[in-house]
C-alpha cells in the first residue's frame, strides 16, 4: 500500500470534509434533508475509507470493535432512555413536550436528542459490520487494486 500515494493523499484530503458533512447532516436535519440515519452512514463511511486505504488495524486502533459495540448500544439507549425520561417527567413515552416549558422547544430538544442516538447507533453498527467483514479478509494485494 505504501506507493499508492494518490489514494492516500486524496483520502486524507477527503476524510475531514466527510466527517464535517456528517455532523452538518446530523445537526441540520431539522432544517433540511438528512438526520441521524444519513449522518451515521456518512460518518461511518469516512472511517471505512480510512480503513480501506490505511488498513483495518489503523482504524481499530482508534475504534476497537468492543467500543463500536458499546457505542451502538449507547445510541439505542439514548433513544429509548429519552422515552423513559419523558415518562418520568409526567408525559407519555417519547412525549417530548415534558422536556421544556413550551411545546415547540421541547419537541425540538427531543428530536435533536433522539437523532443523536440514531446517528450514534447507525454509525457504530455500519463500522462494526465493516470491521467484522474486513478483519476476516486478507489485505488486498497490490495487483488487485
Amino acid at each position: 500500500m505504501e506507493h499508492h500515494s494518490i489514494l492516500r493523499v486524496v483520502s486524507k484530503l477527503l476524510i475531514p470534509p466527510i466527517l464535517l458533512y456528517a455532523l452538518y447532516v446530523q445537526f441540520h436535519g431539522e432544517y433540511g434533508p438528512g438526520g441521524g440515519f444519513q449522518a451515521g452512514v456518512i460518518f461511518a463511511v469516512a472511517f471505512i475509507l480510512y480503513a480501506l486505504v490505511f488498513g483495518i488495524e489503523a482504524m481499530t486502533e482508534i475504534l476497537p470493535p468492543r467500543l463500536l459495540l458499546i457505542l451502538s448500544a449507547t445510541g439505542v439507549l439514548i433513544f429509548a432512555g429519552t422515552g423513559v425520561v419523558t415518562m418520568l417527567l409526567g408525559d407519555a413515552y417519547l412525549g417530548y413536550n415534558a422536556l421544556a416549558a413550551d411545546p415547540p422547544h421541547a419537541q425540538e430538544w427531543g428530536i435533536v436528542i433522539v437523532e443523536i442516538g440514531v446517528g450514534m447507533t447507525v454509525a457504530a453498527v455500519m463500522m462494526a459490520i465493516f470491521v467484522a467483514f474486513a478483519s476476516h479478509n486478507p489485505p488486498i494485494k497490490d495487483e488487485d487494486w
Binding site: 436535519g29 431539522e30 434533508p33 422547544h105 419537541q107 425540538e108
Partner: peptide, 9 residues
C-alpha cells in the same frame, strides 16, 4: 406543534 421546518424530521 414541533416548530421545525423539515416536516420529515
Amino acid at each position: 406543534e414541533i416548530g421545525i421546518p423539515n416536516a420529515v424530521a
